[in-house]
Design a protein around this nucleic acid. Structure first.
Lengths: 212, 212
DNA sequence: GTTGCCATTGACCGACGGGTTAGGGATGGG
DNA sequence: CCCATCCCTAACCCGTCGGTCAATGGCAAC
């Protein structure tokens, strides 16, 4: 039998190592983080890390897995009754919130991704699929909105979605990495909405009392 | 007297080393690039590198300097006669072109910047100043455009400029790092212009302030 | 020819990297 | 009590790192 105490200790130290590794990998990157540092940060011996994880890559994979846990999309089910405009708003708001809430791991993945440091195909694949899924959702809702006359028909849905995604990414990168010189995210989102829905004050219960 | 041949050889090998270092630093990053690799790539001995550059940091600084050389802004002088709208178009076009033409070094700096890997203050400072200058220019032209009724007054100039910059950055990051799944940059720019200048394709000023 | 400087090299160094190994305490089953 | 198994560690291995150094070929000046 496996001892409950031993098991718990096992998981304890493993978690401690993982937490330390996440911290270090996220702030310093893979190559710049040494196993000795992880050991020191986790207050265990280096050998114990290699007992839990066969290799440094292995530890990295475990970190990636842990970081990927919250990456789920949960929209759409209960929002069937909203009109296309509100659904799009909800999608965009969800994207922004997600990035905000997972700021550290998002910037971590973003960094890996941009630096071309190769990650196992499975992970980039999963992230890409999520991103593409999101874009597809957005494109679809935009198309729907256009059909119902709620959405600007200035461009094809794909082009609009591409632009919205790019703008969002730019805004969020601003938010994540240029912490100084903050900007007005709400106004920016309002501009995106205006671009999507036209200047019609529509169902938007927001400021700008232009019609007074 | 200094021998012309020696001098030339000196500069030759120095340049060769710099070129190799640029290539390697840009693709693999600072920490992941070893001096031995640079030596191999430049087809010189490692010791020669340390003869030209006291330390690895030194080499890195030289690389940064070389990469920063083309970073200049040359707008605005001969464009005095253009109207605000055209000037804004020119600014945005210039930004896009600049990033495109200096793609490799831009992404290099972007990577350093995002990864928080510290660069000497002077460089981040220079880049930041350039960026801020550009944004100030854009803000100014937008303000001018708004005053002349050529530009949408949906938001304050700063907010508009922030948004435009963020959107541009998002688009360009798309362009730089997501080479697959290309998108329609021209359409995206057109959308930006529409947002800036209103839906009117011509030069007709809309929404006069005197309309009340 | 020799002197002196410059560019360049191979051999070398200590430090640190990822990874291994031999073993030691705890715990539980027989 | 002994043995097996699990966690865990100190010490070690070996390759690579940034960096140094003594030595050398080449070339201009005398």
């Amino acid at each position: 039998m496996v001892t409950a105490g031993g098991q718990a200790q096992n998981q304890d130290s493993r978690d401690e190592i993982l937490k330390a590794a996440i911290r270090l990998f996220a702030t310093r990157g893979f190559h710049e983080t040494s196993m000795s540092e992880v050991a020191r940060e986790a207050k265990v011996s280096k050998a114990l890390i290699f007992w839990h994880f066969k290799t440094k890559e292995d530890l990295f994979l475990a970190v990636l897995n842990k970081l990927l846990e919250p990456y789920v999309i949960d929209f759409a089910e209960e929002s069937e009754k909203l009109d296309a405009r509100e659904q799009i708003r909800k999608l965009i708001g969800g994207y922004v919130n997600f990035v905000r809430e997972n700021a550290s791991s998002v910037s971590f993945f973003l960094r890996r991704f941009m630096s071309g440091e190769e990650m196992p195909e499975a992970f980039t694949e999963q992230i890409r699929r999520l991103y593409d899924l999101y874009k597809a959702l957005l494109t679809d809702r935009i198309r729907l909105g256009q059909e119902k006359g709620l959405c600007a028909r200035s461009n094809q849905p794909e082009v609009l979605a591409d632009f919205v995604m790019a703008a969002l990414n730019g805004l969020l990168i601003n938010l994540l990495f240029m912490s100084q010189a903050p900007f007005d995210l709400d106004s920016a989102l309002a501009m995106l909405y205006r671009l999507l829905f036209g200047d019609v004050p529509g169902a938007a219960p927001q400021a700008e009392p232009a019609a007074h």
